[in-house]
């Protein structure tokens, strides 16, 4: 059974329509790549899932209708988001960033610092004094502290040094293999997506235009729909 289902989802920013027909499903333990060129609606889709913008159509999470929920209520159901742009709580330390988001469950301070040992070394440092990569690790760890059933990573490795990118991808692979957590990943790197994702959904101009197994994503499809 699908954990997250989006069917014929439409969304707009005021009078400007952004999503026209989004269809997406994620099952328990599945890692799904949400792909598409810039401006095709990937981040907007994430915002509709997290209830940050209103949407019409069918949005369900674990059989529960998401459309009437506020953003924080959706998060409490078990949707964890790592937002685009390393958005930590700047004035809080690493530990405080994580404690502020903490909800009961298997993910606690000790476990997230095992996943990102570097955060343990920086635990008393303010988030705004960390490097970009470390801030991204805080953002991922903070989402894990909410003990989500579905983790959404929106451009989590964008603009990071190759070695840090490797660490983040390593953590995603570890999450997949060791926890069986459902994950949606948005990223530009097809090579790395292919290594961790089971399925892919491609968006074009606010519509789902391709959905299938990662292994079925041919070079022709990726060149035509993603430009990679």
């Amino acid at each position: 059974m699908s954990l997250l289902t989006l069917q014929n989802v439409k969304a707009s920013y005021g009078s400007s329509e952004a999503l026209f027909d989004i269809n997406l499903s994620v099952s328990e333990g599945e890692v799904v790549a949400l792909m598409g060129r810039n401006g095709m609606g990937k981040s907007t889709t994430v915002k509709t899932i997290c209830r940050m913008i209103p949407a019409s159509g069918q949005l369900t999470f674990d059989g529960q209708d998401l459309s009437s929920l506020a953003s924080h209520q959706a998060a409490r159901l078990g949707i964890g988001l790592v937002p685009e742009g390393r958005r930590c709580f700047a004035d809080l330390t690493v530990t405080e960033n994580l404690q502020a988001a903490s909800r009961s469950g298997p993910w606690d301070l000790a476990r997230v610092t095992t996943l990102f040992p570097r955060l343990d070394e920086r635990k008393r440092q303010r988030a705004n004094t960390l490097s970009g990569g470390e801030q991204q690790m805080v953002a991922v760890a903070r989402a894990l502290m909410t003990n989500p059933r579905l983790l959404i990573l929106d451009e989590a490795t964008e603009g990071l040094a190759p070695i840090v990118r490797q660490e983040i991808w390593g953590a995603i692979a570890q999450l997949k293999n060791e926890t069986g957590m459902a994950i949606i990943v948005i990223d530009k790197s097809l090579t790395e997506l292919a290594q961790v994702c089971d399925r892919a959904t491609i968006l074009e101009r606010g519509k789902t235009v391709w959905d299938g197994l990662m292994t079925d994503l041919t070079l022709d499809i990726s060149e035509r729909l993603i430009g990679v």
Binding site: A75, G80, F89, D91, A101, R142, A143
Partner: peptide, 12 residues
């Protein structure tokens, strides 16, 4: 610091 961001971690 970030009222919208805090909602994504389940806080009102």
């Amino acid at each position: 610091q970030a009222p919208q961001r805090v909602q994504t971690v389940g806080l009102d």
